[in-house]
Design a protein around this nucleic acid. Structure first.
Lengths: 259, 259
DNA sequence: GGCTCGGATTTGTCCAGACACATTTCGGCA
DNA sequence: TGCCGAAATGTGTCTGGACAAATCCGAGCC
């Protein structure tokens, strides 16, 4: 070891030479990756080698490599080594949700009134939109969400579920909370992904009438597909009255170095 | 230490008793949190205590606690301890972007035509929407994005930037690519967060005319605020022609618990 | 009362090892 | 030639320490 962390550090290049040892090493290694010294696709030196080079223990090198992994620079596998997979920290931006309820963005104490359900056979266009295949038999459930029983309408909902959930559809009417929640619980399959599409469309006549609006009223249409391992659990169209609904999201930059 | 990791493990409860030591401890601690043995808001036992209880080293306990931190169960601070912040594994869902261009969702080879710019003083409502304060002086830049020079219009854009970027506004017209990109580069401040609001609105008359649409045409309005450390870099309203634009997003479940 | 200044406590960083486990490579054997 | 097992290689897990840095709390002082 050379000197110490705290004593002779703040004199020279203040930025690069401060902080814990493993972070300094992490920065150095990141620099080598970005400069091409460790090309993308190649294997980095082993932990032992790096430890020797930086005159430090394997523990410290591992901490540095752990950071590189989390930042997306490298990929590590036991028995194989540390492979460079990206040249850049990939300044990642992401939006995170504590739960799918947040994605929902509708207060939980609103009430859903189910208008009815009916079997449908998907045609080409519908199949594409709900994420099924043309010719498959699904069930469509129609409903309206209200601010409160007898209150103002919030949106019109058309949900499509595969026929195999037929037995559960009856429970939709008395279920409080979103359908995907019930389906996820009963089917036992965890929702792995949600695909959402947002558009502005003129509200179909029948729907506008249900919401007490004139024909051709503008609406915000949300389409959500809830996907478990491979299969669609439920796909849902929501028509929100224009102006009544704002879909808000915050996208944040991921994990930056402390500086 | 009791016996070993590999020998007498797979006999009993196969699920809970396998895997590395730190993961078993992590599962046990998570169980205690979920069962309320460690209430939310309280401090957990210290690393040393846990190490003593599980008859293991502090390193192993730290690995377990690191997992709990990543899963969102606890929060750790030097000198204070490990505080329970959540009862549940917080099955997190998130949407990630490799870059802000992805958020943009408009092909990069479209062309932006700047119509002009003018200083504005924010009134209360505008201030709230662009993220400034009432009375502040900002600059509004109007423009239209086209599929190609002389092609079809895609959307009308009103961007607001604080007055301090006045000198950069002239460069907007000949800049290719999004404005935030230019501002981020020139100001040197990294965009930390983007706030986005999506609504369906009737297009204002003046805007509809610019896009060659009848008055009152439905549109998808996107409002994006690009935030650097504390300050708004630019806020942008985009009016997309209804039906022409679909905002798509995929939200995926992050790192699932072993269960 | 309000302030500062030391401990005591607790997590953060770090060391020098050890064995387990996964992967690749290579030599031996059929 | 082709297959299989063993050795080499490298990361994963783990021990039992050590000191540093942040935080909290109480004692003492103004």
């Amino acid at each position: 070891m050379t000197r110490d962390t705290g004593t002779a550090s703040k004199t020279s290049a203040a930025a690069a030479n401060t902080g814990p040892r493993y972070l300094r090493i992490q920065r150095m290694l990141a620099g080598r990756i970005e400069s091409g010294a460790y090309p993308v696709g190649s294997l980095m030196p082993t932990e032992s080698d790096l430890g020797e080079e930086f005159a430090t223990s394997r523990f410290t090198v591992r901490e540095a490599l752990r950071c590189l992994t989390e930042d997306g620079y490298v990929e590590r596998r036991q028995g194989m080594g540390t492979r460079v997979i990206s040249l850049r920290p990939q300044r990642r931006y992401h939006q995170s949700f504590e739960s799918l309820q947040e994605l929902f963005q509708v207060a939980v104490d609103t009430t859903m009134v189910v208008l009815g359900d009916q079997p449908v056979v998907l045609d080409g266009e519908l199949a594409e939109r709900v994420g099924g295949r043309a010719g498959e038999r699904w069930i469509r459930i129609d409903g309206v969400r209200w601010t409160a029983p007898g209150g103002r309408p919030i949106c019109y909902i058309q949900s499509y579920v595969p026929e195999r959930f037929e037995a559960l559809v009856q429970q939709f009417a008395e279920h409080r909370g979103p359908f995907f929640d019930l389906l996820e619980r009963r089917s036992g399959a965890a929702i792995e992904e949600v695909q959402q599409e947002i558009r502005a469309v003129e509200m179909p006549l029948a729907i506008a009438r249900q919401l007490g609006l004139p024909a051709g009223a503008a609406s915000l249409q949300l389409l959500r597909r809830y996907v478990t391992a491979g299969a669609i659990l439920i796909a849902s169209f929501n028509w929100h009255i224009a102006g009544e609904m704002t879909y808000k999201m915050r996208i944040r930059r991921g994990r930056q170095q402390p500086d």
